[in-house]
């Protein structure tokens, strides 16, 4: 499952309202072949102190399962407005989710972190199984996850 978002509605503070001050960033999440039903995966950003800043993408359409993305639920409050317009289908075992967003320059190399929470029906909930800094230095370097994520790569 690959899809690329070149531009999304500016529903969160993260996405640059003016393209001139922004940079396109690509997030590629590849799941392990864990062999279960599709995984719910959420990508979101916190500041250095762990304070929630906004959600990048929610893979998984049924709100009643969001409680299993527990860190996201905790820091974001789980409000529907947080993911309005940036929701897609859950990610199958072994599949890859690739999204590209225009992020404001101010977000980059400023101590912000991208978190990935995952959960699978009858499987595990993995809050913050990947946490990587939004640093250009880490561009293109795959990071492993503790749960269902095989690799997570941010490319600036």
């Amino acid at each position: 499952m690959k899809f690329v978002l070149s531009a999304v509605a500016a529903t969160t503070a993260l996405i640059a309202p003016v393209v001139a001050e922004a940079r396109q960033v690509t997030f590629e999440t590849t799941l392990k072949a864990y062999g279960g039903n599709g995984a719910y995966v959420v990508l979101y950003v916190t500041d250095a102190a762990g304070v929630y800043k906004g959600t990048l993408w929610m893979a998984g359409g049924k709100a009643k399962y969001y409680r299993h993305l527990s860190d996201w639920q905790r820091v974001s409050g789980g409000r529907p407005t947080e993911i309005d317009g940036i929701t897609g289908a859950s990610i199958g075992s072994g599949r890859t989710l690739k999204i590209s967003l225009d992020l404001a320059d101010a977000m980059i190399d400023a101590g912000y972190k991208v978190h990935v929470d995952t959960a699978v029906e009858d499987g595990m909930d993995n809050p913050s199984e990947v946490v990587v800094p939004l640093d250009t230095a880490a561009s293109g370097k795959p990071a492993p996850g503790k749960g269902y994520v095989k690799s997570f790569t941010v490319t600036f």
Binding site: G123, M124, D125, N126, K146, G147
Partner: peptide
């Protein structure tokens, strides 16, 4: 029980 023992996670 979902648990975390160091790098090992499991149910």
């Amino acid at each position: 029980v979902a648990f975390t023992d160091g790098e090992t996670r499991g149910v």
